[in-house]
Each structure stands twice: as structure tokens, then as C-alpha cells.
């Protein structure tokens, strides 16, 4: 299987010179293409920090992170921004859509940054809106969408750039059970049909139940790494 994420001995220490806090401690993690992985653990266990490191939003104090064969550990800031744009999709807990752009424009925004043509953008946006079941909300502003619908648009936005994988930080934390279930259905479908790799940080048992692999973090260390289902691909 093709390895998408390869994290070697990754550590992240906050306040290393005063009161050191080991948010992530000597973590080894390999993620293969097509995985549907949940990072679980109590609050403060380092789930979000690990996601930030894997997503190139933060830099480790030790170790290295290789994404799809490219070592991103020492990349310059602008290179890293480019790398994120073309390789990594993000879904945030609080949806984080751009409030002044419509659903279509939010999805299109990433592709504009990539320099995609109008035709490419229009086709991709229509496909993605159809996949997330919001074809009728093309020109709707985020404030007029429900939380679940906003998070679905956020997933479509993450997919728009055709990333290597999607990192989702507590994607269902702000959703009711129906919306959370709908969102998980969509992500599972994308995982199955498009072989899209998903890595979630979550407390939500509904997400953990749907994950094919569950990685447990405690005090910044991986304490267990369990394949709950056989990956179908």
C-alpha cells in the first residue's frame, strides 16, 4: 500500500525553555492511502497538535514528517503554504467557512488559489455540491446554512483541491446527531468511492464506530493503534 503520511519520532514541546509541555512525544505514525483513521484520546492528549503537525501548520521540535514522499519538516513558510494548498485538505471543528462568500465561492476559493480555470472550477464545484447533497444551496451564504450543511461545505472545500488526504479536527463536535451522521455518511462514501484518506481527531463515539483504524493518544504518546475494520480497498 502507498504510504501517504510517515511521521518519525515526532515530538512537539511547548515552552521548552521554561516549563516544558510535551504535547506530542516521540510519535511514530504511518497512514496509507484510503485509510479512515480516528485519533482519539482525552482532552490535552495531543490530538489537535498531532493533526497540526501532520498538516504542516506547526513544526515539530524533533523528528520528521514525510507526506507522500516529501519531507515537510524543514520547508520554508511559503513552500509549506503551497504544499498545504495542493496536498492537504482541512476540516475544522467550527466549520470556518468564509462568511462573506457563498457555498459555491467557498469551495471555489481553494481552486482559485491553485489557478484553476473557470470551467474546471465550475465543473468541480457542481460535482462536489452534488456529492455533499447541497446542489440547491450553491448561492447560499454560510449564515443561511445549518451547522451540518456548513460542515458539508467545509468537506467539499477540503476536497476541492484534490488533496492527498483530509485532516478533520473534531468535525462532528458542533453538530447534532442527525447532521453528524449525514456528514459521516458523506465522508465514508468519499473514502470508499474515491479512496480519499481521512484522519480525524475526535471524542465522538459515532465517529470512532465508523473509523477503520483508531489511534489512541494519551499525554502525547500513542498508547494503542487498532484496525477496527479490514480496509476494503
Amino acid at each position: 500500500m502507498e504510504i501517504v503520511i510517515d511521521a518519525h519520532n515526532v515530538s512537539k514541546v511547548y515552552n521548552p525553555e521554561t516549563i516544558p509541555v510535551h504535547a506530542v512525544n516521540n510519535v511514530h505514525l504511518h497512514v496509507e492511502r484510503g485509510e479512515f483513521t480516528a485519533l482519539v484520546g482525552p482532552s490535552g492528549s495531543g490530538k489537535t497538535t498531532l493533526l497540526n503537525l501532520l498538516g504542516g501548520l506547526d513544526r515539530p521540535n524533533e523528528g520528521k514528517i514525510v507526506i507522500n514522499g516529501t519531507d515537510i519538516t524543514d520547508m520554508k513558510e511559503n513552500q509549506l503554504i503551497d504544499f498545504r494548498l495542493n496536498n492537504i485538505g482541512f476540516v475544522f471543528q467550527s466549520f470556518n467557512l468564509i462568511p462573506v462568500l457563498t457555498a459555491k465561492e467557498n469551495i471555489e476559493f481553494i481552486m482559485l488559489l491553485q489557478g484553476a480555470s473557470k470551467k474546471q472550477r465550475d465543473e468541480r464545484v457542481q460535482t462536489l455540491l452534488k456529492e455533499i447533497g447541497l446542489s440547491d444551496k450553491t448561492n447560499t451564504m454560510p449564515s443561511q446554512l445549518s451547522g451540518g450543511q456548513q460542515q458539508r461545505v467545509a468537506v467539499a472545500r477540503a476536497l476541492a483541491s484534490k488533496p492527498q488526504f483530509i485532516l478533520a479536527d473534531e468535525p462532528t463536535a458542533n453538530l447534532d446527531s442527525k447532521s453528524a451522521s449525514d456528514l459521516l455518511d458523506i465522508m465514508a462514501k468519499l473514502n470508499k468511492e474515491e479512496n480519499m484518506t481521512f484522519i480525524f481527531s475526535t471524542h465522538d463515539s459515532r465517529v470512532i464506530e465508523r473509523a477503520r483504524r483508531v489511534v489512541t493518544l494519551v499525554d502525547g504518546r500513542i498508547t494503542s493503534d487498532t484496525a477496527t475494520f479490514q480496509i476494503s480497498h
Binding site: L57, R84, F90, F92, S94, L113, Q114
Partner: peptide
Amino acid sequence: TREIGMLMALGLKKGK
């Protein structure tokens, strides 16, 4: 601040 951070996370370069 949060939104700008999100835009930078998604791939908006400093120049833009």
C-alpha cells in the same frame, strides 16, 4: 484573526 489563520492554513500565501 481566526479566519485569516484559516485562510493561511488552506493555502493563502502572505503576498495574497
